[in-house]
Design a binder for these strands. Structure first.
Lengths: 153, 153
DNA sequence: GCCTTGCCTGGAGTGCACTCCAGGGTTTTA
DNA sequence: TAAAACCCTGGAGTGCACTCCAGGCAAGGC
């Protein structure tokens, strides 16, 4: 099939997840190879295997020869994990959430709490970013003013 | 003087910068020891030295015996760096900005560009976080509904 | 049949942003 | 004037989240 291996988002900065070349879902099916999922999610195949190893994925189905076959449910889960990743939640905490899901319905309240605390973090971070935006705008204005002044001179 | 060494923000997650015990500025002075600055900024003394080593700080003034003496200007700079850090900007890029500042006024347009691109990143991240918030709210509602239903049963 | 491409595993390596250590000098407090 | 607390440097160590490697199996095209 040959789907070109994922465009790596520059490794330094905060996880990106808005990569250009996100492939559309190969329609109607429910069994995807690892490279298809990589192309769709923007994660590398390495990362997908690693997610499974550390327990961040429910164990993925295999073909009769042992190759991974991801389902639409897996893709939904990965999309949600992507959102959590955007919040800056550490992978260990996501694994904890995944464990709660595995444990079944009696962990609903724990999961709810975890998500609510995440929600609070997100609100705080949005606030911080807004403050930062104000500072940036102020500094940008300063530079723009200075340049206008020097052009007039 | 003995200012207790900085409360380290949990190392895993995204930089925090909203630590509880931020000390107020020791008023009116213009020469602060490294531990005073650490208490004030929430950065560790190690990190402050490291910032200087990698060129993220203009070279800091010294006492006659070689100990660092930070000024109010340094504190302003650190506050700004803190904002940039919140955007998720890699340290290497901040160093680049610091270099531009060192190079003088003819780098105004470069600096402005750099800040504008950062500004765009911040806007994008705010958008992502808002999307994430919607997903979280939806999931939290799901759990809350499920729990209400099971209580009624 | 053979070549290319894709996938598998366990484990080692990488890059970033700190964080700590050893071994020593300095300043403040009692 | 001691003890305690603080600060210095260069370099090594840490934790996180990947990222890559070696060595090998499997499937499709020619």
């Amino acid at each position: 099939m040959t789907v070109t291996q994922v465009a790596k988002s520059k490794p330094g900065s905060v996880p990106d997840c808005s990569d250009e070349a996100r492939q559309p879902l190969p329609d109607g099916r429910d069994r995807y190879t690892i490279s298809e999922v990589a192309a769709f999610t923007g994660l590398s195949a390495h990362t997908l295997r690693w997610y499974e190893r550390i327990g961040l994925m429910p164990h993925v189905d295999r073909s009769h020869t042992g190759q991974r076959r991801f389902t639409n449910r897996d893709l939904d889960w990965l999309a949600f994990v992507g959102k959590l990743r955007l919040t800056g939640m550490p992978v260990a905490d996501m694994v904890r959430y995944a464990e709660l899901v595995r444990l079944g319905e009696h962990t609903f309240s724990d999961r709810q709490e975890l998500l609510e605390s995440t929600r609070r973090d997100v609100l705080r971070r949005i606030g911080e970013l807004r403050d930062t935006l104000a500072v940036l705008d102020h500094k940008i204005d300063t530079y723009a003013d200075a340049r206008r002044a020097s052009e007039r001179a």
